[in-house]
Design a protein around this nucleic acid. Sequence first.
DNA 1: GTGGTCTAGACCACG
DNA 2: GTGGTCTAGACCACA
Lengths: 129, 129, 129, 129
Amino acid sequence: MLINLDFESDEPIYQQLVHQIIDGIARKELQPGDSLPSVRSLASDIGINLHTVNKAYQQLKQEGFIQIHRQKGVVIHPEGVPKADEDYKKRLIHHLRPYVAESICREVSEAEFVELCKSIYKTYQGGHS
Amino acid sequence: MLINLDFESDEPIYQQLVHQIIDGIARKELQPGDSLPSVRSLASDIGINLHTVNKAYQQLKQEGFIQIHRQKGVVIHPEGVPKADEDYKKRLIHHLRPYVAESICREVSEAEFVELCKSIYKTYQGGHS
Amino acid sequence: MLINLDFESDEPIYQQLVHQIIDGIARKELQPGDSLPSVRSLASDIGINLHTVNKAYQQLKQEGFIQIHRQKGVVIHPEGVPKADEDYKKRLIHHLRPYVAESICREVSEAEFVELCKSIYKTYQGGHS
Amino acid sequence: MLINLDFESDEPIYQQLVHQIIDGIARKELQPGDSLPSVRSLASDIGINLHTVNKAYQQLKQEGFIQIHRQKGVVIHPEGVPKADEDYKKRLIHHLRPYVAESICREVSEAEFVELCKSIYKTYQGGHS
DNA sequence: GTGGTCTAGACCACG
DNA sequence: GTGGTCTAGACCACA
């Protein structure tokens, strides 16, 4: 999978990595059971620090996206990612709220905002509808 | 307006302040032309440093939400906030994408996600006016 | 003469006042010997503080643009403004330099910059060529 | 690059820093991609506070002169500075106008003023390259 | 070691 | 009294 990092972004590199991998899963490019490169090889491939990759992997593991085996290495969680629970949705709303607020200030209508979200969903199409 | 900060949060205080004020504008609790407390008074009200408030105000000013007026002090931008342009929407999509991706992984359907956004929009309607 | 102040500008109000009056002189709208409103009346006309007007007048006086008489009030210096000496030109260069530097970085050619200056001169036309 | 600050000047230190660096870029002493000292080291070199340096860097970053790169540190924007657009020229005229006005009052002819600008431009040619 | 954030306290220009 | 600037010192996340 292609990893695309922006070193000038405010977003920490390890976060970008996390997002890219989640994105790959959402796009079905990474399927349950697929294996990911080792910390070392990924780090040297992208040209970033070991710790940075490790931090990203740890976060992905803790959120249930991947498993880290001593022998099999790093794999996408074979049983899929834990489904959204109420807690997740609560956090999601909490994160989305500021974007909605600013959009309202800038006169983006609800319909427009919704369309925009749908358009993002479309980019992951062929999914699990 | 009530300001509610979470000092335990990872989100920087000045960012929370920015969001709270934008939220107030979206809720119509802060109207164009309304004045905001001075840096100093707001800082002492909330119990934080005046530089932190200042940083928030500077960001709000730069993004066109407020004006820093030599006579009237700090006021909500009287002509309203600059409307969303293509650039804003591009950035918005860029910010929203990771949340959509994770939601897809967690099997949140497009419809569900859209409903969730609408529910957030609803919290900004039925304001006072 | 019309005074046009921008209370949101970074430029201090008294400085804006100074510039506006110098501008009026450059446009020949204010001629040597013409009288200016008193500190009090100008302040109340524009709706600003006495001190602010006073500070502007003091600076104009010190630079030789106006005279302040107890009886005749404030008048444009009847013998004209002191002509540019080497010292003035040195200061002028010192002030202009940063604008030239930034313009060079932004690929504004010398010719373009010169044209721009000429265009400004034109707005004061009918002058003393 | 040599930094030359005047601590007696009215011009804020961070502004002087900004101007000096832009000047360095205009003189081609700082080329796209070149790296600048870290906030801390520059601050201690010049003998000022790191926040002051930081403020200058933030402004330069926001105006597109530099990038703050997570790995390479602070570098001159590799793709060059954004070229002058109409907005920049409008602001430039707005800043230049008062100097033109005062010069007219002091009987500096258009030709003389233009020569002066050209002479400033000359100081940025014949650099090393 | 880097930049980002926050605090605290000080001086000054402005109005 | 206001915001703007500067200093000093501290902690943390990041790489």
